[in-house]
């Protein structure tokens, strides 16, 4: 039988996650409740965190912290987070967005995880209070690499720096159905310019590997360059480095590999298509 426990504090939830391997954290439930309805999840305890800290947004300054329970809808309602609106709007339809949480997106299997792609290009850190790497802020890339084998965890928040120029942060999701369709792939890029050259470039992909990944080859191709046709060509040539896309109901591995460089080129060229 499946039980539900309401945790008034994060500490209480962390205690249960650490001690009970059958505890399943419930964010917005858009993935967990599917399993309940399909009879895939019939035993154990669903943990509902009611601590207000879990749904807190701190976005007034240069350092941003989003509680893991913050929903895509809450991000879209927050003007200080305008640079993240394209990524938040990429998740499902309006009702899904009112439920889908930042924390749940970190665990969503490919081709889901579009918001996490944006976080990866922002060099986000994941605050874990129980389970993998607990008690510290883990770099998101490290967190994703360990996600499948790390067992139950309680993520309480994600943290990252605000891009000093929001116009240098880009996100696009490629899907076959508009306005709402599951990702063929998604791309996020943070391209800070200093003196006409790019420095600390971060590019990330969704649906191009079992988890969202950083596009290291592209980052190397762009670092220190000005964003011109030559640099974009080099980035496109390096686009597929490290990619291991899947064939699924949305697209084949071949198709994802074919279209990724095209969409990356358009994003870098500022082409709105």
């Amino acid at each position: 039988m499946l039980d539900v426990r309401h945790c008034a504090t994060l500490a209480e939830a962390a205690g249960i996650v650490s001690g009970d391997r059958q505890a399943v954290l419930l964010g917005g439930g858009t993935l967990v409740m599917r399993d309940v309805n399909e009879g895939r999840l019939t035993e154990g305890t669903l943990l509902r965190v009611t601590d207000p800290v879990f749904r807190r947004i701190e976005a007034g300054g240069g350092r941003i912290e989003l509680g893991a329970g913050v929903t895509m809808g809450m991000i879209l309602a927050n003007r200080d987070l305008a640079f993240l609106h394209a990524a938040a709007r990429a998740i499902g339809g309006p009702a899904v967005r009112n439920m889908a949480s930042v924390g749940g997106n970190l665990f969503a299997a490919s081709p889901y995880g579009d918001f996490t792609v944006a976080l990866l290009a922002l060099d986000a850190q994941v605050v874990v209070q129980a389970g993998f790497g607990s008690g510290r802020a883990v770099p998101l890339e490290e967190f994703l690499a360990a996600r499948e084998r790390s067992g139950p965890a309680l993520v309480t928040a994600v943290q990252f720096s605000r891009p000093s120029n929001p116009g240098e942060f880009h996100f696009r999701k490629i899907s076959r159905v508009r306005p709402k369709g599951i990702s063929v792939l998604s791309i996020a890029a943070h391209l800070p310019q200093s003196g006409g050259r790019m420095a600390q470039v971060r590019v990330a992909y969704g649906a191009m590997a079992p988890t969202p990944i950083r596009a290291r080859g592209v980052e190397r191709a762009l670092e220190g360059k000005s964003l011109d046709a030559g640099a974009i060509q080099m980035a496109k040539q390096a686009a597929l480095e490290g990619c291991r896309p899947a064939t699924d109901a949305i697209a084949s591995e071949w198709y994802r590999r074919e279209v990724l460089p095209v969409h990356l080129g358009r994003l870098l060229a500022g082409d709105g298509r």
Binding site: G29, R34, N98
Partner: peptide, 14 residues
Amino acid sequence: IDGEPHLSCLTLSV
């Protein structure tokens, strides 16, 4: 729910 669309098939009554 409180004025915003939610999917009741994925929402716990409790």
